Structures are given as C-alpha cells and as structure tokens.
Amino acid sequence: MPLLSTTPMLEAAKKEKYGIVAFNVHSFDSIYWVLETAAELKSPVILQTTVGTVQSLGAKAIADTVKAAADQYQIPIGLHLDHCTDFDVILTCIRAGYTSVMIDASMHSYEENVRRTKEVVDLALKVGVNVEAELGKVGGVEDDIVVDEKDAEKAVPSECRQFVEETGVPTLAPAIGTAHGIYKGVPDIDFDRIEQIAALVDVPLVLHGGSAVPDEDVKRCVALGMAKVNVSTELKNAYSEAIRDHFSNEPESLDPRMYLQKAKQAAKDMVQSKIRIVGSEGKAHPLYQ
C-alpha cells in the first residue's frame, strides 16, 4: 500500500489513546526488519531518518526502498525526516516521497522558530506532507545537533498553544525532560507539563528521546497525549551489540548471514517490545485502508 502522511495516523492514535513508534533506520536492511515486525503485530509504524542518513544513503533511494517494502505489508506506514534545520534538505525529501518532515528551529528565538516552521508548513501541507516542530530544547545528541544538559529547556504550555496557532503545525514535539541517546540516570520527565500542554493544543504530541525511558513512563506519556514516540539509539545499539557479541563468542565465524541474522533478530525483538509498550499492536485497522 502507498506511504501515508503521518498526520491522520497520529490523529487516530491521539483519539484512540495509543502511540505510534517512529524508528530511526540507518541502513536499507533496517527498513525491512522494522516493517516486517510491525506487520507481524498488525501495527502502524513510522520509519524516520536523520539528515546524516539522508546524506549517506540518498533521499530518493530511501523513499524508493520504503515504497517498495511497503508493497509487501498491509499496514499504515509513514516516512519521516527527523531533526532537520535545512530548508533545502526538507524540500529534497518531500520531492523524494517523504510523507512527514521535521523542521527543528528550536535553537533559535521563539519568533524565528515560528517563522521557519511556518515556512515549511506553508509548503508541506499543500502537498499532503505532515510537519513536526520542536518547542523548548531536548537535551542530548541527535546526528550533528548537540544540546548540553545545562542548555536544555522545557516547553512552556502557553507558548505551545500560541506556537501551534501561529504556525499551523500539525504535530508538536515539546521538550518535557527527555533526552536523546541513552540515559546515564533516571530521566526527569515532567508529566504535569505534558498534561498541561495536551490540554491546550489539539494536535498530536511527539516524545523525543524515547530510547531507554522506563516502559511505565512511556505508557504514561502516551496516555497523557504523546501520540508519536521516537526510538533511535536503543534500536541501533541492540543491532550493533548482537554483531559484537557474535564476534566475541565466535571470532572465526565470518559469514555475514550468520551475524546479520542475529543482529536482525535482536533489532526485531526491540521493535516488537516498543510497539507493544505504546499499545499500537493490532491498530492497523480499516481507517487506513
């Protein structure tokens, strides 16, 4: 089936109070094992790539591969560009066939964030592409965007409402205490802030920094209004660690089919777990057909 804009996917998730996981994929094979697992669980899913992955693999090659893979699976699938600061890259991905893009201008002033977000919204919505924007600053490292812990800022609920009204952005990623990467301690998630923001805006909210957040915390975030949950580092690590363990235990076993199969299974187990945590298993219902 064709790729879908993530707007209706996330609106349905918000309405029915489940989440949709957006998995960062970094290679062509990862596209297939994420979709394979989502299809086994009859779950909607979002594949997303960083700007670095776009530069490495090519926007058109990624989009064409996802479209070809999507023909094998009767589930709702969206393709999202994550954390992009460059309008030209966003335009390239839209032209290639991405169905959702993120303009990240959160490092700028509120006024400049509004201006840059609105510029992308005005373009993307005309061609049915979802737009995601960030308010506040999520800490940690995402591709080449680095936000020190001391510089991380939580989103202000009243500003979130104003931002959505001024930009028309259909999905919002407010900073609420999570961080990109794997946590060194316990994440300081501001659940009250999520609830306040969800009460003030009508659009689906996005949880950035979803890797290694305790399961019960993720479930609580989804229940409070986080319809999209991003997972990157945890998935990438599961795949890589399986390869490392293979060579640690069997250093002479050099057949790629052996170690890549182990890596794929480790990644699939992680995908399965995350889908079940957000409650999207079995949600590939006729609304999307």
Rank of each mutant, 00 (worst) to 15 (best):
L3G: 07
S5G: 08
K17S: 08
I20A: 05
V21H: 07
N24H: 14
V25T: 12
F28E: 12
F28A: 09
W33V: 05
W33A: 02
L35Y: 15
E36H: 07
T37M: 14
A39N: 14
K42T: 04
S43Q: 03
V45L: 03
I46C: 11
T53Q: 11
L57H: 12
D64K: 05
D64T: 01
T65Q: 13
A68H: 06
D71Y: 02
G78W: 01
L81M: 00
T85W: 01
D86Y: 09
D88R: 06
L91F: 03
L91P: 01
I94G: 01
I94D: 00
R95P: 02
R95N: 11
S100A: 12
I103W: 00
M107K: 09
R115L: 00
V129S: 10
A133E: 07
E134A: 04
L135W: 05
K137H: 14
G140N: 09
E142M: 07
D148P: 15
K150C: 10
K154G: 02
Q162N: 13
E165T: 00
T167S: 00
T167M: 00
I176A: 14
G177Y: 08
T178D: 05
A179C: 08
H180T: 10
G181P: 12
I182S: 04
K184A: 11
K184R: 12
V186Y: 15
V186R: 15
D188F: 03
D188E: 14
D188R: 15
I189A: 12
I189Y: 10
D190G: 10
F191N: 11
D192F: 08
R193L: 09
Q196G: 04
I197R: 02
V203R: 04
H208M: 10
S211Q: 03
S211M: 06
P214C: 10
D215I: 02
E216D: 15
K219Q: 15
K219S: 04
R220A: 12
R220H: 14
C221M: 08
V222S: 09
G225I: 09
G225K: 07
G225M: 11
M226G: 06
M226W: 06
A227R: 11
E234F: 04
A238K: 13
S240D: 06
E241A: 13
F247N: 07
E250M: 07
S253N: 15
L254P: 00
P256N: 10
P256G: 05
M258V: 14
Q265I: 09
A267W: 14
K268M: 15
K268L: 01
M270T: 01
S273D: 13
I275N: 09
I275T: 08
R276T: 01
E281Y: 11
K283M: 05
